[in-house]
């Protein structure tokens, strides 16, 4: 059992720990889930690259003992696209945050899904800009308090999983920091799926979000995640009225939310065909 032997520890740069995240932060849970999923997949430290953007989530790459790339704000997916196309044999994982992926990097997120490059994108969604001290993100709920929404947010959040599906991601899943094993399983399934895989992990930020929104302790935030996350099969069994009531109560489904029915050609495989066609053409 990986859990008991802590065999995942070899995937961390021990000399770079402890991490800089606040006590009670959920990012460590998601980071550990990623390396456990890598172990489960049998990917090695030599054939796996971790790419991140800017923000709290994106500092994870520095702690992980692989080839790692801490890019510019919002740009992790384009960098990862370049790596994967240049070296298709490498496994490429993107770690991003809700500001990084859904605000400044929103366009890259959409087109990453559309292009269907074989990447595993893990969104650490803490509903806030943590690194800059608690400003509202595109995932901050309506009415949520942040330093830039002192009277409550009037900007509507959106569902990144719906966006990913609509834009063409071939695997879309969600989990939370409360559901540790489930999160690992979702990420591992995303890694196993060829094409653009998107996994939203809801993680707690007690320092910048919880304290301003009546959940100052990490335990309270985890409890909120437990009480509001509904496993996908149970969610699907809800009747219309019940589902409406759940949504109004901020409940949400977790699990595999979308998987392309027939395996679609990922970008790299499709580009191999381009090369074949080009080389068949006389100059």
């Amino acid at each position: 059992m990986a859990e008991l032997t802590r065999s995942y520890e070899k995937y961390f740069r021990q000399n770079r720990l402890p991490h800089l995240w606040c006590p009670g932060c959920g990012n460590g849970i998601a980071m550990k889930a990623i390396v456990q999923a890598i172990e489960k997949q049998g990917w090695t430290q030599d054939n796996t690259v971790i790419v991140s953007g800017i923000g709290c989530s994106s500092r994870a790459s520095g702690y992980m003992d692989f080839d790692t790339l801490h890019t510019a704000h919002g740009r992790a997916i384009p960098f990862a696209t370049g790596i994967k196309l240049a070296r298709p044999e490498l496994n490429v994982v993107v770690i991003t945050g809700d500001g990084d992926c859904c605000a400044i990097g929103g366009n890259h997120f959409i087109h990453g899904c559309r292009r269907n490059v074989d990447l595993t994108v893990v969104l650490f969604n803490n509903a806030i800009y943590g690194m800059t001290g608690g400003q509202a993100s595109p995932m901050t709920p309506l009415g949520g308090k942040a330093t830039t929404t002192p009277y409550g947010s009037v900007d509507r959040p959106f569902d990144p999983c719906h966006l990913a599906k609509a834009a063409g991601a071939t695997f879309v899943a969600r989990s939370t920091a409360f559901h540790v094993q489930h999160m690992t399983d979702m990420i591992a399934q995303g890694m196993a799926s060829r094409g653009f895989s998107f996994i939203e992990t809801q993680v707690q930020c007690p320092t910048s979000y919880g304290r301003r929104n009546k959940m100052p302790s990490p335990a309270e935030m985890l409890k909120w995640l437990q009480q509001h996350a509904v496993l996908k099969p149970a969610w699907d069994r809800l009747d219309r009225e019940k589902k409406k009531a759940y949504i109004l109560d901020h409940k949400f489904p977790i699990g595999v939310l979308h998987q392309a029915k027939r395996p679609e050609l990922d970008y790299d495989a499709a580009y191999d065909q381009v090369i074949e066609r080009a080389q068949g053409v006389k100059a």
Binding site: H108, H111, V281
Partner: peptide, 26 residues
């Protein structure tokens, strides 16, 4: 593609720059 290389048209100029930097590192 005739040389076995790759061309990708990105969604904007920033993404194009990001993609070449990723490919260069690889």
């Amino acid at each position: 593609p005739k040389q076995g290389g790759k061309f990708v048209q990105m969604e904007d100029e920033i993404a194009a720059m990001g993609a070449i930097l990723g490919a260069s590192l690889a």
